[in-house]
Structures are given as C-alpha cells and as structure tokens.
Write a protein that binds this DNA or RNA. Structure first.
Lengths: 213, 213
DNA sequence: TCGCGCATGGTACAAATGTACTAGTACGGT
DNA sequence: ACCGTACTAGTACATTTGTACCATGCGCGA
C-alpha cells in the first residue's frame, strides 16, 4: 500500500445556521477516521472568512440560510484560490433550489435524514472528484433539466405574477414595458403548457419552480 | 428553597426521522441539568412503543416524517394513560401543518434553528402546563384561526380556478352562470385579502386550503 | 319575524389579459 | 459570418376579469 488515508485526511467544513444540525454533524463526523473537521460556520460570510485563511477539501453547505443563502455563496466559493468541493445539505427532498445549486457548481446532495455511513461515503466521493447524488435526486435533476427551461427573466416574472401583481406593476418593478411582460408571460404559459397565468402560478408551485415560502 | 430540580428531572423523548437532528438534540440536551433524555425515536411507531412502557413528560416531535406523520401520531399520544406534553419541531417557519398540530393538542413550537437555551426554556414551559410559541408563530396561528371562512361553493370554485379554468368553464362545470362564478370569485378574493384570482390560487396553495397534488 | 350568510343571475363599465403578429438589439456558440 | 436564444417594444383586436351595483330566494338562528 502506497497510500495511507491517515496521511491526508479530508478537511471538512460545515456551514449551517441551525445549531442543532451543526452539533449533530460535528458529533457524527468529528471522530471519523480519514476526516478532519476544520470548522462549523453558521453563515456564508463566516464560512468564506474561514476558507480564505485555511484550505478545505469539502464543504457541507445548507441551502437555506438567512442573509446570504447557500446558492448565493457558491460563486464566492468557486472564486477562491483552491475552491472546495461542495455538498448540498438540506431537509427538502427536491426543489428548484437544488437544481440551481447544481448548476452553480455543487457536486453532491445530502438530505438531513441521511445516515452517517452515507454522509461519509458522499464526502469521500466528491473529494475524489466525482458527483454524489442519491438516485431519487439524480432522476429529479434530469427531469428538471429537461423540463421547464424558463429563462431567468421568466422566473422572476413568474414569481411576481404568482403574488398577484399585474403586468403593469411587474413592468414597473423590473423597469421594462408591460408589453414585454406580457410577452414573457406568454412564453411562460407555452413552456409550462398551461393556458393562463393562474394555472402557471399553480403548476409552478406544485413543481417547486417557485417557492412555497 | 424547597424544590430541587435534580429531584424530578423532566423526562424527555425526541422523535425525529433525521439521524442528524437526533444526534444534535441528544448532544445539546443530554447533559442538561433538570432534563433526562429517555430516548430518541426515529418514527411515531417507535415512539408510541416506548411511551407505553415508560412515562415521558415532554416529547419533541418532528412534524414531517415518513409513514406516520407527526400530526397523525398526536391523537395516539393523547390516548396514552399519562399523555406527554408535545412540542412541535420543524424546519418550516409556518404552515397549515403547525396550525393543525396545535389543534391536535401540541403545546409548543420549536424551529430547528433554535438555540439550546430556548429549547430548554420551551421544554420547561410546556412541562409547567403552559404553551410555548415564539411571537411570530403565535400571531400567525391566531391569523389562521380567524381566516378562511370559505363556503363549500367557494372552495370548489377556488379549486377549478387554480387549474386554469375560466369563469365560463367553471360555470359550465357546476351548471351555474358565469356571473355567479364571478361573484363567488370576488368573495374569495375579499376573504383571502388578495387582489386577483392568480394571487388567490397562490395563497390558497401556500396555506394548504387547496391541495398540492 | 327579522337579519344574515349563502347561492343565484343580472347590467354596465373599466381594466387586465391573451393572441397574433412584427421587429430591433445583444450575446454565445458553430 | 451565421444561427439561435433571450430580451426588448410595439400594434391591433378579442376575450376575460374585476368592480359596483341591484335583485331574488333559501335556510337558520336570535
């Protein structure tokens, strides 16, 4: 054997705003051989500060956090001199957010109901440069990629529309004309295969394209 | 002082399907003076089996679990010979589910981002027979109780409306005139305090008034 | 009996929405 | 250089939706 895992433990950083989760992961992974828990940050800013000072191999990142969300922080992670591999950590089974996180460079996904064994496997996998997605998530991701190719603009407008704003109001909000808004909504309706804005809002919520918050 | 907290520690049971959360809460509360962690169940069935054998004062109950959900298990808890006080434990800030859980007898609410201090306070409070709800949740609960007096007809129409049917189509479906449908929708919009049908569909889904299926 | 909420149908009008086009700019990939 | 996509803006017209009313009848509780 020319490789000793104890020689180069995987440096790990936990980023989660929930004290419960930080404590849980720390106690589950802290003494795991082959892993070195570098820290546990409560927010993206704290994590970035830490990453700039000391290198980390794998980050377990909560998507839903106050202030800077996990997704927002991903580009910042990638700009670092030695960007860590990022595993998404969330309670939610599926969501547009996971999809967006993957597009932003996340390499793996873990639900919070995952066992310690699987978490360790996932960390090792992404550290080895591969992706780690449970089958259920993977299939959903491919679904999303193929489905509903709404453009960023269309997504924003869909969001507003579902909150009851009129085309005119949406136009004002984004600084574009109500005609353009109308055109975007027509595209949305076609892409989602619905016949009006109300159904668009409805199916968008059901499919997790827009959040239920 | 005539009372020693160490004489009668509060017996605590954690019910959560997430290993991470169980580990986190256990490590946060296990050594807390005045508390005695009786166990940590991964599901409602396991919790019930445990409760039948040994008495527990307070249960921290996850609402979202596979198989039997937290809400479903609440009535079973109350049928026990010495029913425990139940604190809802969930990641979600608000939800129709919290409302239903309270109606089913839950005495407190804790988000998973709560600090150890607040968790301990909540446990002590409900054990003392009082309720523990953070202000934000409490106000939302009173909102829910007062809201949504939709009549059966209005509910049917809300359902159709969210599927993208026009007033005319809804009228045909129910054998009433499109004018009547329009009037009903106006009532719905007023009762839900929204300005149009699209927002009505949106908030109805968020509040669980109409199903996400 | 009276009032109230629910359900019904209607008129008249204003506003918003949707459809069917045309057409320009910009940007990225082949 | 060309193509495709996104984003933009507009016109013209039909349809839908929303608002403000009015009116009827039913059932139920005070």
């Amino acid at each position: 054997m020319d490789k000793k895992p104890t020689k180069a433990p995987i440096r790990l950083l936990i980023v989660d705003d929930h004290p419960v989760v930080r404590a849980g992961l720390s106690s589950m992974l802290g003494k795991q051989p082959g892993l070195k828990l570098v820290g546990a940050a409560a927010g993206a800013e704290e994590a970035l500060a830490l990453l700039e000072r000391c290198p980390v191999d794998v980050v377990l990142l909560d998507l839903r956090m106050p202030k800077m969300s996990g997704i927002e922080s991903l580009p910042a992670f990638r700009k670092l001199t030695s960007p860590p591999q990022v595993i998404i950590l969330t309670s939610f089974e599926f969501d547009e957010e996971i999809y967006r996180a993957v597009q932003a460079g996340a390499r793996g996904y873990l639900s919070k109901e995952t066992s310690r064994e699987e978490i360790v496997t996932a960390i090792a996998t992404v550290h080895a440069g591969r992706q780690y997605f449970p089958p259920a998530i993977a299939s959903r991701l491919t679904e999303r990629t193929h489905r509903s190719n709404l453009s960023p603009r269309e997504l924003e407008i869909l969001e507003m529309l579902s909150r009851g704003f009129t085309n005119k109001e949406i136009g004002r909000a984004f600084g574009i004309s109500r005609y353009t808004v109308r055109n975007h909504i027509n595209s949305i309706n076609h892409k989602l295969e619905v016949c009006d804005r109300t159904e668009a809002a409805s199916v968008a919520m059901k499919q997790g394209i827009i959040s239920l918050a």
